[in-house]
Amino acid sequence: NKFNKEQQWATYEILNLPNLNEEQRKAFIDSLKDDPSQSANLLAEAKKLNDAQA
Rank of each mutant, 00 (worst) to 15 (best):
N4D: 15
W9A: 15
N41L: 04
N4I: 06
N21L: 11
A44Q: 10
S37A: 08
K48N: 10
Q53M: 09
F3M: 03
N4L: 09
S31Y: 08
L17Q: 02
I14L: 05
L20F: 01
Q8S: 06
A10F: 11
K48Y: 10
D51I: 10
N19H: 13
A52P: 02
F28R: 00
L20W: 00
N19D: 06
L32E: 00
K48Q: 08
E13Q: 13
Q24S: 02
A46D: 01
N16Y: 06
L42A: 08
K26Y: 08
N1Y: 01
S31V: 11
F3H: 10
P18F: 04
F28N: 00
A40K: 14
N50V: 01
F28K: 00
K26H: 12
F28S: 01
K5M: 05
Q24A: 02
N4R: 02
S37K: 10
A10M: 05
D51P: 01
E13V: 14
I29G: 02
N50D: 07
A44H: 09
T11R: 07
K33M: 14
S39D: 04
F3K: 02
L42I: 15
L42K: 06
D34P: 02
R25L: 06
L20E: 00
S39G: 08
K33N: 14
K47M: 08
L20Q: 00
P36T: 03
P36Y: 04
R25M: 06
W9D: 14
Q8F: 10
E6T: 04
L15N: 13
N50I: 01
S31N: 12
D30W: 06
E23T: 07
S39T: 12
L32W: 02
Q38T: 06
E22W: 12
F3E: 13
A44R: 08
K2S: 12
D35N: 13
E45F: 06
A54P: 08
L42Q: 04
N1I: 05
K5V: 06
K26D: 08
D30V: 11
Q24D: 05
T11I: 15
D51M: 09
Q8K: 09
N50P: 00
N4E: 15
A46L: 01
A10V: 13
Q38M: 13
K2F: 12
S37G: 10
Y12P: 02
F28H: 01
A44N: 12
D30F: 07
K26N: 09
P36L: 04
